[in-house]
Structures are given as C-alpha cells and as structure tokens.
Design a binder for these strands. Structure first.
Lengths: 245, 245
DNA sequence: CGCCGATATTCCATATCGGAAACAACGATG
DNA sequence: CATCGTTGTTTCCGATATGGAATATCGGCG
C-alpha cells in the first residue's frame, strides 16, 4: 500500500495541478507553446487553450510573440514563475508527509481545551491536536517530528514548548545515506495493560546518531510537539500500529 | 491562493481516493449498496462496479447478502474498515501541512552529505533535507516543527538530535482557541547583508505561551530538526518569504 | 511581397462517465 | 409452493469531456 497525493493550487475558479506546472515548465524550457506541446507529446490546441483558461483566472502567465525570423516564441511572466515556486514548496511539504513513517497511538480523550486534547494512551498521556467532537482518537506522529535526547540532557518542561515526552529503549536502526530511522520501544504507562509493546519511529541525521551514541539497547527520551501530533476520530475501533512508509 | 490536495492510496493497480472512501462509509451507514447509491445520489451500477473493481485489487471489502425478509444487505469487512482508518490518517497528515504556516529561507548549499545539505542563509547555516543536485535551495520550515526554548534553557547540542537553532525576538502573537502562532524576527548572521528581516513562525500551545512567558519583545531560541526542514531546488530565483496559510 | 515558424481556431473521433432498464437471487409469507 | 419485495448483478445507451488532425492567422525578415 502506497501513500500518494495530487497537489493543486486553487486560484479563483481554476485549479493548477501537476500537469499545468509541467506545462509551464516546458514552455519555459522550449521557449514556445508549440515546442512545449511537442516535448510533452500533447496536442497544441489543448495546451494553448489551457494556458488561456489559466490566464483568465490568474492573469498573464505567458508573454507571446508572433512573427520574426524565428517565427516568434513565448516566455513566462513573473507571475508564472512565482506560481512554479509556490507549487514546488507545496509539493515538497506534502512529499515529506508521504515519505516519512508514522506512528499511531490511540486512546480516549481525558481532557480537552478547544482543539487540543489530552489522550490517554498505553504510554501515558499525549497532548495532540484533535477534532473537537472525538471522544476517542488515534494520534499520528510523523517520524520527522520526533526529537531524541540523552536521558541526562532532557530539557526542563518549564523551558521549552515541547509538551510530549516519552522514555524508551532503542530496538533498531535503519541507516540511510544521510538520515537514520530509529525504532524505539516505549515504556508502557504503569497502569496500562496494553498487549503490544508500543513502538515509535524517529528520523534523525546520521550525525545525531554519532553524537548521541544511538544504538540498540540504549535508553533514550523522545519528545514531540503537541502541535505536530495530530489526532483523528476513532470512536469505534482500537489498535496501535506503526505504518512503514 | 489556496493550497489543496487530493489524497489517495495506491494498492496494486487501483487508487482509492476520497470518493471511494465516501462510498465505503455510505455503505457502512446504510447497510446496503443500493442505499448508499441513493444517499450519495450516484447511480447504482457505477457504484457496484467500483466496489468490484476495488475488490479485485484489494480483496473482499463488502460482505453481500441477497434475499430475505429485508431483501438482503451489505456490510464492510475488516479490510475495508482498516482502509478507512488508513485513509483518515493520511488525510490528517496532509491536512496538517495545508493548514500550517511555512517559512522559507533560501541560500546556496555550502556543504552536503547525501540528501542532507548545509544551506547558507541570512540567519546562518541551516541543515536540511534537499534534492541531491541543487546548488541553491529554498528551505521550507513548517510552523508546527518549530520548538521554542527560553534562552537560559537551551538544550546542549551534544544531548539532542535537534540540529538547527535560531536566536530571535518575538514580534507578534496570534492567539487561537488552543494554539498560538508566534512571529519571531530572527537575528541576522553577522556577515549577512540581507535586506528583509527574516521572520520565522512557530505554532505552540497556549500553555507553552504561559510557561515560557512569550510576549512581543522577548528574546527566544527556536529550534528545528534537520529532517523536518525540507529544501527545494531554487537555482534561478531568490527570496525570503513567509506564506500565511 | 513571399517565406517561415510560431500562435490562434475549428471541427471531429474517441474514451470515459453516468443512468435507465431489465434480470437474478433469496427468504418471508400466505 | 407460488408470490412478493428488497437487494445485488448485468446490459446497453446517451451525454460529457478529452485529445488530436487540419486549417487559418500573424508578423518580422530577406
């Protein structure tokens, strides 16, 4: 099972999607609409009509010239270039979500302050952003939002905005080119009878692995910002699972 | 301009998207395919064919019964329910990206270790995940990935996996129901001549605002994990901008 | 003034989508 | 045991959207 998405920017009536961005890039590269149509193996009419449609909502995107020794050509306006950058940033942000591991912890909401909920899980109370009407939620924690600390160097709660803290033991490392996935078996809460040992995955740099001397068996403290922990309503079912990729 | 996305899960050949999930939910609610078709105002044949198509790739999703006093009916299998939960989690994760502020810092790549790049920005070196071929990148930092610390309580670099650290002054607070957006004017790097004062936005809980006594004018240290800072290639243009919503 | 390469426009083939209608299964009911 | 009602299954047809071939238009340059 593979996570994916189609990002788009909605501007007034039109939606700018992947193929539109691809089209603008091709126009920029080729210097003409017809060239872009050839390069993308799309028909010229549709491509040109699409440009017109986008421009009706967004404003001038392509500066067109006809005639001349080379027959003319087209170049992107500043508006179009800004659009491309916007889209790239959007994709980068979403891409991060798609490529990163997530850990889910579920349990009942025991306290609530607006959209901020305290969830009782098998590893203790977790503070997370959750829909206001949910009585039981599954909290999703992205591995790139998990920070690790040496047990002796844990920041005092009074001095940091990070609100969730878990103690655990490293069980495995998955070393990549520059980043390392770290599997952590969390300490269960004292009054919890959970069957499955709750696991948390963190994504850290290889340099952090060396600095903190991370290795299987070592005790570690993981921290997660409440605003990075997102809960979804889960009023029927119940499970603790880790979702690889 | 509005960010949006269409999430989907790809399983073998089929992609299950929003409408598929909506369909399965309706089947669950109504207890029959025909009821779901009525509720969604979709034609029965297409709906039924879609269920069959999904099942061919994913496996049994709907337990169907024909005949009986009530004419029969359908209920979801465990596979289908798990699919719904998966999808909810996916949406929650993407939703977080769409709703959160982002700060972009750009500059040249001065060092690189695989997909991890050190980027020279107007506020100093930033460690971020970036495409391997980019010489100049824009680093995007989501506000929910920014942690704040009292200047006297900054964790030692040797004891934490958090690699980016910025000093700054709080310039504004936007207090919501439970969470607060914090605007921070970053200290410029000594040898930088940047024109715009670089601004970082952090998203923290209201309780953190009280604990850290956050208010305009106060000095603060912001930290960001390298794996949560994502860079995009930006080899032509150059700007520092903050993108609200 | 004709040429050339590019931009606009018209029109048609095709695939996809959605729905109406007929058909089959099955248990309750009399 | 025939009938009935509800639901699942299948077939077929029309509407809509998508993509492309052919055509017309433009304008500097030689």
């Amino acid at each position: 099972m593979e996570k994916a998405f189609d990002p788009y920017l909605r501007i007034d009536d039109v939606t700018v999607d992947r193929s539109d961005v691809e089209m603008l890039r091709a126009i920029d590269d080729c210097g003409s609409l017809s060239g872009a149509a050839d390069a993308l193996e799309r028909s010229y009419p549709r491509l040109q009509q699409r440009v017109v449609a986008l421009e009706q909502s967004i404003g001038p995107l392509v500066e067109r010239t006809r005639g001349g020794a080379d027959g003319g050509g087209s170049s992107l306006t500043e508006t179009a270039r800004e659009l491309l950058v916007r889209f790239d940033r959007l994709v980068a942000a979403y891409e991060g979500v798609a490529r990163v591991d997530e850990t889910a912890l579920s349990g009942p909401v025991v306290d609530r302050d607006g959209e901020l909920a305290t969830v009782e899980t098998s590893v203790g109370a977790v503070l997370a952003v959750a829909p206001a009407d949910a009585a039981r939620v599954a909290v999703t924690i992205r591995s790139d939002a998990v920070s690790l600390h040496a047990p002796s160097e844990v920041p005092r709660p009074e001095g940091t905005s990070v609100r969730n803290r878990f103690s655990g033991t490293i069980t495995w490392l998955d070393t990549g080119a520059a980043v390392v996935r770290v599997g952590i078996e969390l300490e269960r809460d004292t009054n919890s009878d959970g069957a499955e040992p709750p696991e948390l995955v963190a994504l850290v740099t290889r340099q952090s692995v060396e600095t903190l001397e991370l290795e299987p068996g070592r005790s570690i403290v993981a921290s997660v910002k409440a605003t990075a922990a997102r809960g979804i309503a889960r009023d029927e079912l119940d499970a603790v699972s880790t979702d690889a990729n």
